[in-house]
Design a protein around this nucleic acid. Sequence first.
DNA 1: GTCTATACTTGGATAGAC
DNA 2: GTCTATCCAAGTATAGAC
Lengths: 219, 219
Amino acid sequence: MAKQGVTTRVGQPRPNTAGTRAELVEAAITTLQTEGFGGSSARAIARTAGCNQALVFYHFGSVANLLLAALDATSERRMVRYGEAVDAADGLGPMVEVAARIYREDLDAGHMSVLAEMIAGSSSTPGLGAEVSARLEPWFGFAEDATLRALRGSPLADLVPTRDVAFAVVALYLGIEFLAHLDGDRSQAESLFSTAKRLSDLMGLVFPVAAHDGGDDPR
Amino acid sequence: MAKQGVTTRVGQPRPNTAGTRAELVEAAITTLQTEGFGGSSARAIARTAGCNQALVFYHFGSVANLLLAALDATSERRMVRYGEAVDAADGLGPMVEVAARIYREDLDAGHMSVLAEMIAGSSSTPGLGAEVSARLEPWFGFAEDATLRALRGSPLADLVPTRDVAFAVVALYLGIEFLAHLDGDRSQAESLFSTAKRLSDLMGLVFPVAAHDGGDDPR
DNA sequence: GTCTATACTTGGATAGAC
DNA sequence: GTCTATCCAAGTATAGAC
C-alpha cells in the first residue's frame, strides 16, 4: 500500500548500530524537554530517535520504563557535575553563587525539565510516583550536603536543621523550574538569585565565619 | 444496541437541573485532584459529574476550556479566603503561622493541587501555558502584599525586594505541593513550616519591630 | 439542554516477517 | 534487532434525535 520498492533508506533495518537502546534514552530526554510528559509517547520518542515505535517496547517493555531510564541517565550526569561544583564552594556566599550557576547550567541542559516533567506525569500514571520519588532521594542528600558545606563554621549551622533546608531548596528549585517553563521567562529567577546573593553577603557580616582567623563575635 | 426501553433512569435526559455547567466545573476540580491532568478527559469528568461526555463540548467548547474554568473557580474561592487570613496577620511571626495554616487548609481543599496539575499539563498542551500564567499573576500580587505586611515596621523591609520574595514564596509553595503529592507525605512540609516559625521568632529578636499598635499604618 | 451514535485520531502493545 | 502490520482501547469532537 505505502509507496515503497524504490531505493529509499526508509524501511531498511539498521543492524545493531552501536546502541539503539542508548539512542532511545537520549530521544526520550529531548522529547520530555520539548513535548512534555503528555507528549512523550512511544511514537514521538521513536520519531526523535529515528527508529521504529515497536523498539520502545522491545528494549524497555513500556513507555514509562523508558522515561524512567531517561530520568536515571540525566540524574547521574548532573549529580557528578554538581558534586564537583559544590565541593569547590565553602561558605554561604560562594554556595549561593554555585547554586545560581547550577540553576543556569541546568536550565540549559534541561535536567530539571526532565525531572519536573516526570513529577508532573506522576499524578496521572499509576505507580510512577513511587519510582520518581525514590529517584529524588539522592538529591535531598545532595542538597543537605551542600547546606552543611554552606553553613560550616557559622553559628547558623546550629540553628537551622539541614534536612529542612534541603527539602526547601529542592522544592524551591522545582517550583522555579515550573514557573520559568510556564511562560519562558527566566528573569524572575535571575532576580531572585541576585537578591539571594546580596542577602547572603549581608548574612556573612551579621554572622561571621568562626573557623578562619579571629572574626570574633560582636556582642 | 444497548439494552434500553425499560424504565431505567439511565438514558433519560435531565432537563436543565439548576446548572449542569456548574456541576461540570466541580467535577473537573475533583477529577484534576484525583486523576491528575492526564486523567482529566472529557469522559472522566463527565462520569464524575454524572452526565454525558458531549456536554463538555456543548458548554465549554473543549476540555482545556473546562479545566481553565475549574482553575478560575478554585482560584476565586481561595483568594477571598486567604485575603481574610492575611489581613489578620501583622508581623513576620504571625504571617508565617498564617502561611502554615493556609498550606494545611489548601492541601485539604486541593486548590494547589488544581493549580499544580494545570501547570503540569501546560508543558504538553499548546497554548495552555499562557492562559495558566495569566491566572497565576494575581497570586504573585497576593504574595507580595503578604510579604509587605509581614515585614512592615521591620528594617528588613528596606533590605528585601518584596517582588523577589513573592516569587520565591509562590515557587516554594508550588514545589512543596508537587513533592507532597508525589509520595503522599506531608511530614517534610510540616517540619519545614515549624522550622520557619522558629526562625521567624528568632528573627523578631534580632530585628525588633519599630512601631506597632495594630491600627493604621505605622509610619 | 441532554442524550445517542458515530467519525476520526492517537496511542499502547503484540505477532510475525526479515 | 529491527521493521511492518495490526489489534484494541481511549480520547476529541460533531450530528442529529428527543
